[in-house]
Design a protein around this nucleic acid. Structure first.
Lengths: 201, 201
DNA sequence: GTCTATAAGGAGATAGAC
DNA sequence: GTCTATCTCCTTATAGAC
C-alpha cells in the first residue's frame, strides 16, 4: 500500500505493540482506576519491561490519554456508522447502549471525569479535548433536535439532558447491578436505557 | 449533665477537635478525592501536625471512614425527621434533594463508590456498612411502596430504581452544570430531580 | 498531647549495558 | 529497543523530645 514498504512494516509492528499496550492499560484502568494503576501493572500485563513501555508512551498521563482517545474514536466511529434514517432519540439511545456494552465487556467508562485529578489531566490533553468537543457537538445537536421534535423534554435546558446523558454512560448503577444483583448484561442495558429516558416513574 | 463533669469537659474538647478534623477531611476529600488527599493536607487545613492527627485517627482509612459515617448519619437523621405524612416518592425526592444540596455546598458525594479502591475500603468498614445497610433497607422499602402504589415504574426491578437512585446522589452532571453552565444551585437541584424521576423525555 | 525529625515503602521515570 | 538496576520524590506512619 505504501511507497515505503519497509518503513510501513516497522510502523505496523510498532502500532501493533502500541495497541497491545493500550489494551492492557484499558484492562488495568477499568479494574483499578487511574490512581491505583501503576506502570508496572501495565508493563507486566503486556509482558514487557517498564523502560520499554516508556519508549512508547513518555508518561502515565500520555498513556491513559491515548487509551481514552481510542475509546472516543470508537464512539465517534459508532455514531458515524449509525443509520442516517434513525431519529435523534434513536441515535442517542443506540450510542448509550453501545457505551454501556463496552463497559460491561470490561472496557472503560466513557467519561471517567469523576476524579478531579483525572478530569484536570484530560482537560490539559488537547488531542483528547478536540475529540470530546467533536462528539459533544454531535450529541448536543441530537439533543436539540429531539427537543424540537418534542421527543425529549422541552422544559429542561439542553445542558441538563446532555450532561445527564454523559453521566448515564458511566453510571455506577451498572456495576452495582452487575455485582450485587447478578443481572445479565442484556437486562442491565435494557433497564438502564429505560431508566435514563423514562425516569423512575 | 454528666456525673463526671471534668471528664465530660475533656471529652467535649476532644470531640470538638475531632469534628474540626472531620470538617477539614470532608473539604479536602470533596476537592481532591480520596487518592489525592494526603494526611498533610488534612493536618494543614486543621492547623495541627500530622502526628497529632494520628492521635485522633489511627489511619487515613479510618479518618475517611469516619467522615463518611458522619455523612450517612446526616442522611439517616434527615430521613427520620421527614414528615410521616409524606408519601414514599415524596420522601425519596426530599432525600435526593438533601443529598444534592450537601454536595453543592461543598460536601461529599453520597456514595463515593466509583473507585474500586475506596469501595473495597468502605466494605471492610463494619460501622460504615451497618449504617449503609440500615439506610438501604429504608430506601428499598420506600421504592417498593412507590411501586406498589403505581407511583414508580412497576416494570423495573426494584434494584434498578434503588441503585439508580444512589447513582443520582453522586451524579457528575451536577458538577458539569455547576462548572460549565454556571447554573444556580436551586436550578441544578430542580432539574436533576426532574431528570431523575421523569427521564429525558 | 503536641511537635520535629525520620523511618519504610511505593511508584514514576531514567541510566546505561547489551 | 529491550532489559536490570537505580534515582528521586512523595506519602503513610511513627519514634522520641518537650
Amino acid at each position: 500500500m505504501s511507497i515505503f514498504p519497509k518503513l510501513s512494516f516497522k510502523n505496523q509492528a510498532f502500532k501493533l505493540r502500541e495497541s497491545a499496550i493500550l489494551d492492557a492499560a484499558t484492562a488495568v484502568l477499568s479494574n483499578k482506576g487511574y490512581d491505583l494503576m501503576t506502570m508496572d501493572d501495565v508493563a507486566g500485563a503486556v509482558g514487557i519491561s517498564k523502560p520499554s513501555l516508556y519508549k512508547h508512551f513518555k508518561s502515565k498521563e500520555e498513556l491513559v490519554g491515548e487509551a481514552l482517545i481510542r475509546l472516543l474514536d470508537g464512539a465517534l466511529d459508532y455514531v458515524a456508522g449509525l443509520d442516517a434514517a434513525l431519529g435523534p432519540v434513536e441515535k442517542l439511545a443506540a450510542l448509550l447502549e453501545w457505551a454501556l456494552r463496552v463497559r460491561l465487556e470490561g472496557g472503560l467508562p466513557f467519561l471517567p471525569s469523576t476524579s478531579p485529578h483525572v478530569r484536570d489531566m484530560l482537560m490539559r490533553n488537547l488531542k483528547y479535548m478536540m475529540k470530546v468537543l467533536k462528539l459533544n457537538r454531535q450529541l448536543e445537536a441530537l439533543v436539540k433536535q429531539g427537543q424540537e421534535q418534542g421527543l425529549l423534554n422541552r422544559d429542561l435546558p439542553t445542558d441538563v439532558i446532555l450532561f445527564s446523558y454523559y453521566a448515564r454512560t458511566c453510571d455506577p448503577a451498572v456495576e452495582y447491578l452487575q455485582n450485587f444483583s447478578k443481572m445479565a448484561p442484556d437486562d442491565i442495558v435494557r433497564h438502564m436505557l429505560k431508566v435514563s429516558f423514562e425516569g423512575f416513574r
